[in-house]
Nucleic acid binder design. Structure first.
Lengths: 359, 359
DNA sequence: TTGTAAGCGTTATCAA
DNA sequence: TTGATAACGCTTACAA
C-alpha cells in the first residue's frame, strides 16, 4: 500500500499539500499546478488513503452498522441487507453487520459497533410493527427499517412499506385483468399490515365501481382450519380471483383449487404478497406475487441514514423513484414497489400511487 | 471513550504497563500486583481499546469480509450470514459485508475490504458448485462457502453440505416412519447436489433392505411438464412417500395429491430439502422439510477462517457438534444438520451419519 | 521491572 | 503558498 508520504516524495511536495489536494480542499493553499501534479502522481501510484489512519484522526469512519434481531428468521432479510449494502457502496460506505437477540447481546453488539466507530445505525425489523430503538442508540444517527417507534414524526426516522398501496394495486391488477368477484384472504394475526392491505383492497373495489361483498373477505391462520375456511369461501362465495395477504395464505387457495379441479391462472386468478417465490417459480406466471419492498427499505434507509450523518437532507426527488411503473398485464412477473420514507417534521403527500413524506 | 493514557494516570502506571497488562503479556515485565491494579482500574473506567488505533499499529483489524455475489437471490443467504456473524461475534471479530456482481464491482469491493484491513475473506455462493475464487484474493486467508474451486485439497478451503447424508437421512426418516414405496422427485438441472442426494436415497433403501425400483425415481424441471410427470408417477408407480429434491419439487407432489383427493401427512408422506418453510408452516408437521446447513456453513466457515488467520488449526472436535441428533419421529419439524469442513491435506472420516474431514 | 519514545498514516494547526 | 509538526490511541523496541 502506497502512503501519502510516498506520493509527496514522488510529486516533490509536502504531505500537507498532498492531503489537501487529494481531498480537493487545496483552494488558496496549494498552487493549482502543484495540486494537479499531485493528483496525477497519486493516480499513477494507485494511492488510496488508509481509512483506518484517516478515521483515527477524523473520528469518522464511513462505516454504518446494520443491526438486526433476526437476520435469519425470514427469507426477506437478505434483500434488506442487500439494499442497504448497495446504497452504502454507492456512497462510499462500508457496512458492518451484527445480529442480536434483542436482549443483553444487543447492548454488547452495539457497543462493539460504536467502538469500531460506525457513523450511524440501521435498526432493522422483519415485519412492520411498533418497536422501540434500544437506548444505547439515542443520540446516534439511526434509521428504523420496517418498523416505527410509535412516536410518529417526533420519533426515530423510519422506512415502512406502503401497505394500503400494495393492497390497492394487487386488487386493481386483478380488476384490470377482468376479475369481478375478488376475494380477500387475510391473516388473523394482529399485524399492522393486515388492515392496511385490506383497506387498499376495499379502496380499489370502490374506485372501480365494484360492490364490496363482505362474504368475499376472510381472515385465516393456518393448517386445517385455514384450509377449511378457504374451501368454504370457494364454495359459498364463488370468487373468480383472490388477493392473498401472503404466500402462506395463497397456498390454501392453491390447495383448495386443486381439490376442485380448478387451475390457477386459468379458472381463477391469484395475487399474493410476499416473496418466498415458490408460487411464481413453479406455476404459470400470471397468477403472481407482489414483493414487499425489502430491498428498497434497505436502500433508502441507508441513503437516509447517510444523509443524516453527512448533514444534508435527503431530497424528496431522491425518493420518488422507489415507485416503479405499473407493469403491463402480460408481464411475466409484475411487481410494484411501494416504499415510503418518513422523517421528523415531514409532510405527507400522495404521489404516483405511493406515499412520499417530504421534509 | 476513555483512553489508555487515562487508565495509566488513574492507575499510576505507564501506558506500556497498561498495554502489556491488558493484553495479558505482562509476564516478567509488569509486577503482578501492578498488573492487577491496572486491570481493575481499566474495568472501573470501562476502558475498551480503540480498535482503529490498535489496527493502525498492528495491521490486524479483527474484522472479516463476507463477500457474496447474490445476497438477495435466495432466501438462505441470511442464514449463512447469520452463522458467520455469530462465529465472528463469539471470537471477537466484526463482519463487513459486501455484495458483488461477480465482475468489475467485485474487484472494487474486494479492494475496499482490503483497504479497511479485513484479516480474511468468506467467499459465499448460494448453492454448491465449482467456482473459482477471484484473483484479488490469492494470498489472503479465504474460505469458500457452499462451493468448491475444483482443485480439491490443493485448493481454497471450503465448506459444503454433505448431500449424500441429507438424501440418506431424508429417506431413512421415511423408512422409519413405515413407508415402503418411496419415490424420489429430483431436479433435472445439472446441480452438484442432485446425484448426491439421489445417491443417499439409494443407499438408504439398500441399507434398509428395500428394493430400489427405478420407476420411483424421476427428475423434473418446472411448470406443467413437471406437474404432469409427478402425476404420472402417482398414477403409475403408486408411491406411499416422496423424497423431494427441494420445496419447488415438493409443490408438485402437493398439487398432484390434492387433485387426487389425497392428503399429505395422512395418505402419503413427503420430505423435501430446503427451507422456504412454506410447507412446514402451512401443513401438518410430519411431512416435513430438511434444511440445508446454511447457518452451519456460515458458522464453521467463519471459525475456519479465523483459525487460519490466527494460525491455530481448527480441531476436528470443534466440528463434530455440527451434527445434531436425529430427532424423534414425533418431533414437530425434525431437522438434521449436515455440514462438512474440508481443508487442504485433510482426510475423510465418516462420523455419526455426517462426514467430517479431519486435518 | 519501569517508563520514554518511535511509529502506524492520516488530518489540522500554525509559523514561515 | 508552503511545509514542519502535533495529534489521533495504540503497540513495542529500547533505555533506564
Amino acid at each position: 500500500m502506497t502512503t501519502i508520504k510516498e506520493v509527496a516524495e514522488k510529486a516533490g511536495a509536502s504531505v500537507t499539500a498532498v492531503s489537501l489536494s487529494l481531498n480537493h480542499r487545496e483552494n488558496g493553499h496549494v498552487k493549482k499546478e502543484v495540486a494537479q501534479r499531485i493528483r496525477r502522481t497519486a493516480k499513477e501510484l494507485g494511492y488510496r488513503p488508509n481509512p483506518l489512519a484517516r478515521s483515527l484522526r477524523t473520528s469518522r469512519t464511513r462505516t454504518i452498522g446494520f443491526i438486526s434481531e433476526e437476520i435469519a428468521t425470514t427469507p426477506y432479510a437478505g434483500k434488506m441487507i442487500l439494499g442497504a449494502q448497495d446504497a452504502a457502496s454507492e456512497l462510499g460506505y462500508m457496512m458492518l453487520l451484527v445480529n442480536t437477540d434483542g436482549k443483553g447481546k444487543e447492548t454488547d453488539e452495539i457497543a462493539a459497533l460504536k467502538r469500531y466507530g460506525t457513523d450511524g445505525f440501521l435498526y432493522a425489523k422483519m415485519y412492520d410493527r411498533i418497536s422501540s430503538v434500544p437506548e444505547d442508540l439515542t443520540g446516534c444517527p439511526t434509521v428504523l427499517l420496517d418498523a416505527t417507534d410509535g412516536r410518529g414524526k417526533d420519533g426515530v426516522p423510519f422506512i415502512v412499506p406502503d401497505e394500503v398501496a400494495i393492497g390497492y394495486d394487487a386488487t386493481m391488477y386483478l380488476i384490470r385483468a377482468g376479475c369481478r368477484r375478488i376475494a380477500y384472504v387475510g391473516c388473523s394475526e394482529p399485524l399492522i399490515a393486515e388492515p392496511l392491505r385490506r383497506k387498499g383492497y376495499v379502496n380499489a373495489l370502490k374506485d372501480a365501481g365494484l360492490e364490496h361483498d363482505p362474504s368475499l373477505s376472510i381472515q385465516v391462520l393456518n393448517n386445517r382450519p385455514a384450509l377449511k375456511a378457504v374451501e368454504r369461501l370457494f364454495d359459498d362465495a364463488r370468487p373468480d380471483a383472490f388477493f392473498c395477504f401472503n404466500d402462506a395464505r395463497a397456498w390454501y387457495v392453491y390447495e383448495a383449487a386443486a381439490r376442485r379441479g380448478l387451475t390457477v391462472g386459468q379458472d381463477i386468478s391469484v395475487v399474493g404478497v410476499d416473496n418466498s417465490r415458490i408460487i411464481s417459480e413453479t406455476f404459470d406466471p400470471r397468477p403472481t406475487t407482489i414483493e414487499l419492498p425489502h430491498y428498497e427499505m434497505g436502500y433508502w434507509g441507508a441513503r437516509k441514514l447517510i444523509s443524516i450523518i453527512e448533514g444534508h437532507p435527503l431530497k424528496p426527488a431522491d425518493t420518488t423513484n422507489t415507485l416503479a411503473e405499473m407493469p403491463p398485464l402480460d408481464a411475466p412477473c409484475p411487481v410494484r414497489i411501494h416504499c415510503s420514507i418518513v422523517e421528523r417534521g415531514s409532510v405527507t403527500k400522495r404521489k404516483n400511487g405511493g406515499t412520499v413524506h417530504e421534509a
